[in-house]
Amino acid sequence: MKQLWLYSIRSYLRLGLFFYFKKVEVINLKAIPKDEPVIFLANHQNALLDAILIAVKNGRFSYFLTRASVFSVPLISKMLQSLQMLPVYRVRDGFGNLSKNTSVFTKSSQLLHEKKAIVIFPEGNHNLKRTVRPLSKGFTRIIFQTLEDYPETKINVVPVGLNFKHATKYSDSALINFGVPFQVGSELLNDKNKSVLQLKEDVFLQLCQLTTHIESENYDIIITYLEKLNVDFTQPKHVNQCISNGFETCKKGLPEHDHRLKRLSKVLLIINLFIPYIIWKKMIQPKISEVEFISTFRFVIAITLVPVFIIVVMSVLGVVFELKYAFIYLFSVIVLNIFSVKL
């Protein structure tokens, strides 16, 4: 039953991502082990959308270490736990709660021993800046505890670079850039302090290659110049080379223009989905305090409120007129969505 639930949710999210993103590209997926313990370590830019993309596209039913604050509502907590999310407590959650992480890390070690996959965002928070922030050592604690409790275990570490062309816009394009897995074992326990530093450095360096990485110094100047060049941020290798070569090898991108059919489709789509659109624009978006959550909440509206509204309209059309008009409406909405997103 649990597998059926997870398959159903993943399939629904995959469908939602198809209608939400113009394109989602995945690189190096075949290199990920299927029946071995894996710990995915990803950069964190776009709030919950980061986790959704990895969950849908990594080919495994993974467990996610998630900040504990989102588990505060009992019903939401049960839902998140059913989706294999584990709460992690931070200082801001209260010093008294930090001890609860012990059981979470123990659970994570057991999962790795059972050859499961775990996803962690080691930067510790999200930020739309195109830079890899310093990594916390929480993931190393899980690795060491696993190797201490289960010395025979070999853990596959997979850095993941998440890249968005325009993270807050609709529609956007994304790249999930899986790094080269490297395996670690009990040899790390010989010198823990050295191993912690080495692990963090190895993961950090890979992440800097898998996503656009702009150093903090002169960040604003560099990002402004890159945006003027209209570089494609879903091509991090080219963008990073552009930066390292002093912009001499930069390829200037063509300006993005909305096709007339695309603009018309957006207007007609809004008309057909006017109630969800108004709720989003007038009630939800103005209350979002962190820009990183814009895409997440927009996507949640797209996969919850929009389908409900479509079903209601179809029901009314089917009862008042004929069933064929209900399906004409559904077909129209699907076509308009595809044109407004994919063109």
Rank of each mutant, 00 (worst) to 15 (best):
G179L: 08
V180H: 13
V180P: 05
V180N: 13
V180L: 12
V180C: 09
P181S: 06
P181Y: 02
P181M: 04
P181T: 03
P181H: 07
P181C: 02
F182H: 03
F182S: 00
F182G: 01
F182W: 05
Q183M: 11
Q183E: 13
Q183Y: 03
V184S: 10
V184E: 10
V184N: 07
V184I: 15
G185Q: 08
G185T: 02
G185W: 02
S186R: 15
S186G: 07
S186Q: 14
E187H: 06
E187Q: 12
E187F: 02
E187Y: 04
E187D: 13
L188G: 06
L188T: 05
L188F: 11
L189Y: 01
L189P: 03
N190G: 01
N190R: 13
N190W: 00
N190H: 09
N190K: 11
N190C: 02
N190I: 08
D191M: 07
D191Q: 11
D191G: 04
D191I: 10
K192A: 08
K192M: 04
K192C: 02
K192W: 01
N193D: 15
N193E: 14
N193A: 12
N193T: 13
N193M: 12
N193K: 15
K194M: 09
K194N: 13
K194S: 13
K194P: 00
S195G: 06
S195A: 12
S195D: 01
S195C: 04
V196N: 06
V196G: 00
V196M: 02
V196Y: 07
V196E: 03
V196F: 08
L197I: 02
L197Q: 08
L197V: 03
Q198D: 11
Q198G: 00
Q198Y: 01
Q198L: 10
Q198I: 00
L199D: 01
L199K: 05
K200G: 04
K200N: 09
K200H: 05
K200L: 12
E201M: 11
E201P: 00
E201G: 02
E201T: 10
E201L: 11
E201H: 12
D202W: 11
V203T: 06
V203C: 11
V203P: 04
V203N: 09
F204M: 15
F204E: 13
F204A: 14
F204I: 12
F204R: 14
F204H: 14
F204Y: 15
F204C: 09
L205E: 15
L205V: 15
L205P: 08
Q206R: 14
Q206P: 07
Q206S: 14
Q206G: 06
Q206K: 14
L207D: 09
L207K: 06
L207I: 12
C208I: 13
C208M: 14
C208P: 05
C208G: 09
C208H: 11
Q209A: 12
Q209W: 11
L210N: 12
L210T: 08
L210P: 06
L210Q: 09
L210R: 07
L210S: 03
L210G: 05
T211R: 06
T211W: 07
T211P: 07
T211S: 15
T212D: 07
T212Q: 09
T212E: 07
T212G: 08
T212K: 02
T212N: 10
T212P: 08
H213Y: 04
H213Q: 08
H213K: 02
H213M: 03
I214D: 00
I214T: 01
I214P: 00
I214H: 04
I214W: 02
I214Y: 03
I214S: 00
I214K: 01
I214Q: 00
I214G: 00
E215L: 10
E215M: 07
E215S: 13
